[in-house]
Design a binder for these strands. Structure first.
Lengths: 253, 253
DNA sequence: ACCTGAACACCGTTCAAGT
DNA sequence: ACCTGAACACCGTTCAAGT
């Protein structure tokens, strides 16, 4: 009721409530808890155990506190995760985009690589990105840098959002697949190569798959000099170059 | 113990268990339940209420049956969802890719559009795609068609997976964002345009956002002749053309 | 102002029991 | 062979109560 949200619809985003940072310690000097400590512990747990295993009760235990204490600092689990999400977005290094003479291709590439670095060092972020609005201050700074760069590419104004989609939805998709695969490997206690091999061998045990899988398996094994990780890195680079080359080609048509 | 899975690691995929379709009615003619009815009800619920609200108990209620009955046909919730996922993959129309004279650009575009149609008519699919291996029979048929098409593009063998990533991870990312936005609109009981407008007005109420948001808002409003949906359709088309143009450009370098 | 404990309405899944 | 009921170990969150 105290916020700007409508009717009985749940609040669309923490960032739309009155105070810039939702709940804060009034005084300096520490009680046991404060929002910063809660956020830090959340990130630690998410990095270590993944989103699926994260719970408010688990978090409270990590903080050495009762289940409900956290709720004094944060209204809901969703609000907490939204704050954490923007915090992680703030770890991206946004290149200085103000000077007009920089190469937009290089800068766009840099932004994409930075995005990827963030997404693949915190595999749970992709799982939150779509769920929340991601309109916190750090996220907005990043978005605006992307806009500024693509504007200098010479792409027509009405194609700007499409061009940005081609780049950043690709990175998002790529890192989602990558992250979930990595989480699966961790859960199984195997390296990516081991997990992949195990999978392939189990799959080829099933006669009726032999035929349909062969093409895909052959392709994978033709690159067997590289580790899975190196291969992914290569794929990402190729694909990113492809998209940027496409933006250039479409502009020149 | 009866399956090929290792140690205490949970089964990596239903499709790796012995029987092609995990559990099946032995006899013809119907009791109350069977796997087909369960799968159909699951899809119906997921379409109507989304993944977050789906539960085994909710499903059982929908089928007019006790919570645990479903477990006779399916080992876990994950197994059920994996089967459902492949079933939906089977609704894609895979173009005939066998003749060598077709235009690979058109066929690749067709495959991407088909993928998108599937993903955006079942918004919950993107949320499952990363979680499960997606190596069921229907999914494999689609993947193989993609491989066949990209092979005819003339892209070097070691760039094939990168090129495919550029296309399909983009589509995946795009449809994920799209789907989650649509779900949010449905939950709020608003059309996409209404929801977007509401959001923009709430955001601009916050003084400290005014500045950082202006660029993005201006961009959106410069296209205000179109509905959000038409805009998205346009963006998707542009972006897809961009990626395909990029594959061509990279090949010719 | 900050934290606790009990409680509510949910989960997925196990297991012994019914027909 | 198929379905049920009670139970276990979890959730997020509310609310009255403590200090």
């Amino acid at each position: 009721m105290a916020s700007t949200s409508r009717a009985d619809t749940p609040q669309a985003s923490v960032w739309l409530s009155r105070k810039p940072v939702p709940k804060r310690k009034g005084d300096a000097e520490g009680g046991a808890l404060d929002l910063e400590r809660i956020v830090a512990a959340t990130v630690r747990l998410l990095d270590a155990e993944g989103l699926a295993k994260f719970s408010m009760r688990r978090l409270a235990a990590e903080l050495g506190v009762t289940a409900m204490s956290v709720y004094w600092y944060v209204d809901t689990k969703d609000d907490l995760l939204e704050i954490v999400l923007d915090g992680i977005n703030g770890t991206m290094v946004v290149p200085d985009v103000s000077q007009e003479d920089g190469d937009w291709r290089e800068q766009l590439r840099l932004l994409a690589v930075e995005y990827r670095k963030m997404l693949s060092s915190h595999t749970w972020v992709t799982q939150l990105l779509g769920r929340y609005l991601n309109i916190g201050p750090s996220s907005m700074a990043y978005t605006n840098a992307c806009l500024a760069v693509i504007r200098r590419s010479g792409v027509g104004e009405e194609r700007i959002t499409g061009a940005l989609s081609a780049v950043f939805q690709f990175v998002y998709g790529f890192c989602t697949a990558e992250g979930l695969f990595m989480e699966r490997c961790n859960a199984a206690g195997l390296t990516e190569d081991e997990y992949f091999k195990l999978l392939m061998s189990e799959v080829s045990e099933r006669y009726d798959y032999e035929e349909s899988f062969k093409e895909a398996v052959d392709l994978m094994e033709s690159q067997s000099a590289l580790t899975r990780e190196e291969r992914r890195e290569q794929d990402f680079g190729y694909a990113l170059d492809t998209v940027i080359a496409g933006i250039e080609a479409m502009r020149d048509r």
